[in-house]
């Protein structure tokens, strides 16, 4: 009997901080049955609590951008993303950090 796999992928990437406040990211995603996708991105910390992000990828060709706002233990993220079928889409994120500090 053959093994059926619906979705299985490998994601390998690195972040590089050239200068303070500026992080470059690169990653490759490989899913079986699809060509590898290269993803590049940049995050700039304009001030301590505000981050600006922009990124692009191939396979499929997409672009994206967004912001991140951090206030004490709460982080709110917003991004727009050019979905190949749905057009421009919007995504929101909420992160709450539980730390000793």
């Amino acid at each position: 009997m053959n093994l059926t796999i619906y979705q299985l992928y490998f994601w390998l990437g690195a972040d590089l901080k050239f200068v303070k406040d500026l992080v470059f990211s690169a990653a490759v995603k490989k899913e079986i049955g699809f060509n590898p996708s290269i993803r590049l991105g940049t995050e700039y910390s304009m001030v301590d609590f505000f981050k600006l992000r922009i990124g692009t990828s191939n396979e499929p060709n997409t672009y994206s951008g967004g912001i991140g706002i951090i206030y004490q233990f709460v982080q709110v993220d917003y991004a727009f993303f050019s979905h190949p079928d749905l057009g421009l889409t919007h995504q929101f994120g909420l992160i709450i950090r539980f730390t000793k500090n």
Binding site: W11, L12, G13, A14, D15, L16, K17, S25
Partner: peptide
């Protein structure tokens, strides 16, 4: 240099 290595299944 920070490395983020993730394998998603």
């Amino acid at each position: 240099l920070f490395f983020l290595l993730t394998i998603f299944f």
